[in-house]
């Protein structure tokens, strides 16, 4: 079980590093937002998985709230790029 957890978390960590490189390099603001959105979805999935490993049910509620906040943030930045705000 613990080996399985370590393999899963390292696959996702390598992915998060790749997305973070795009976040630093990305030529426009929209590129950075896409990279940040991907990282936040990785965090949601890992938070639920960590809640199972540590046997804490409350982590699922935390990740649900984090998903809602990330969605609202991306919509706000998209409105700003359109010139709506």
């Amino acid at each position: 079980m613990s080996y399985f957890f370590i393999i899963i978390i390292s696959i996702i960590a390598v992915g998060a590093i790749l997305a973070f490189v795009r976040f630093v390099k990305g030529p426009t603001a929209a590129d950075r937002v896409v990279a940040l959105d991907t990282i936040s979805f990785m965090a949601i999935a890992l938070m639920v998985f960590l809640g199972f490993v540590l046997e804490r049910f409350i982590y699922i509620d935390v990740s649900l709230v984090y998903a809602v906040l990330g969605f609202v943030g991306v919509i706000t930045i998209a409105r700003y790029l359109e010139g709506g705000i």
């Binding site: 426009t28 603001a29 929209a30 937002v33 896409v34 959105d37 979805f41 949601i44 649900l64 998903a67 809602v68 969605f71 991306v74 919509i75 930045i77 998209a78 409105r79 700003y80 790029l81 359109e82 010139g83």
Partner: peptide, 21 residues
């Protein structure tokens, strides 16, 4: 269900915002 509804919506809004930018 929330991820399946919200993620395409936000990427659609972001694509339109990028085009208007």
């Amino acid at each position: 269900i929330f991820v399946a509804i919200a993620n395409p919506l936000s990427s659609h809004a972001l694509a339109r915002g990028a085009y208007k930018d």
